[in-house]
Design a protein around this nucleic acid. Sequence first.
DNA 1: GTTGGGATTATCT
DNA 2: GATAATCCCAACG
Length: 234
Amino acid sequence: MKQKEIKQKDNLDQQEKPVAKKIKKNEANPAEEYEVVETMLTADFYKAGVVELAQKLIGKIIVRQLPQGEVRAIIVETEAYKAPEDKACHAYNNKKTDRTKYFWQDGGHLYVYSIYGNNYCLNITAATKDDPEAVLIRAVQPLSFDIIKEIRKTKSTKVQDLSNGPGKCGGCLLLDKSHNGLNLCDQKSGMYLIDNKKQYEIGVSARINIDYAEEWKDKPWRFYVKNNSFVSKG
DNA sequence: GTTGGGATTATCT
DNA sequence: GATAATCCCAACG
C-alpha cells in the first residue's frame, strides 16, 4: 500500500527536502514532533553506566555520512549488556577475544559483531575503558528514508522491516566489523549522535533471546519507545 | 583445520 | 508461526 510512496523518486530533487515531512507520509506513528539539536553528543554523554546509557539513548538520532548521502534514524529500542557479571554479555567474566576486545574502550565507541551470516549488530560502549559494557541498538526509526531504502534492498512492503531489528539497524547504517572501535565523538569518524528534545514514553522489559543467561535473562535492561511500530517483535 | 552454535532475518505456508 | 539460510567466531584438537 505505502510501497508506492516508498519507491518513488530514487534521485532527482533530493536537496532541501524536509525529512520529517517525508516520514509523516509513510508511517502511522511518525516522529514529526521531534526536536533536533544539531550538535554532536560528546564523550561526557557516554560516561554513564550502561543501564542508564541504554535509557538515555532512546530518542537520540544516529547520523552517518555515506557516499550515498547522510543517513539519519531515531533510536527506539536498546538493551544493556554489562560484563563481567552479566552472563548474557559477550564479555562475560572478562572474556577478551578478537571479537570482544572492543568492549574495553571508553564510552562512545562502537562494538559491531556478526551473527547468523550477514547480520551485523551495533553496540555503543558505556562508561570507561575499564568497564566492559555496551548498549545494543535493537531498532531505529528511519528519517532519511530514501537512502535507507536504497541501502537495505528489502523486498518487504512494510516500512517497519527496514529497521525493526538489530541486524537491520546495522544494515541501515551499512556497518560491518570494519567499524569496530569507531569513535562517535570524533568528527572525522563521519558517524555521531545528536540530541532530540522530544520526550518519549519509554517501556521497560527483559532482554530478548538470551535464554542461556540463567539468572541474568530476566534483568529489566531492555528499553523502547512505547507504541512505536519500529520496535522489534522480539 | 574442523566443528558447532548464535544478542537474526527472509521467505515461505 | 515455522523453518531454512548463512558465516563468523570461539573452542577444541
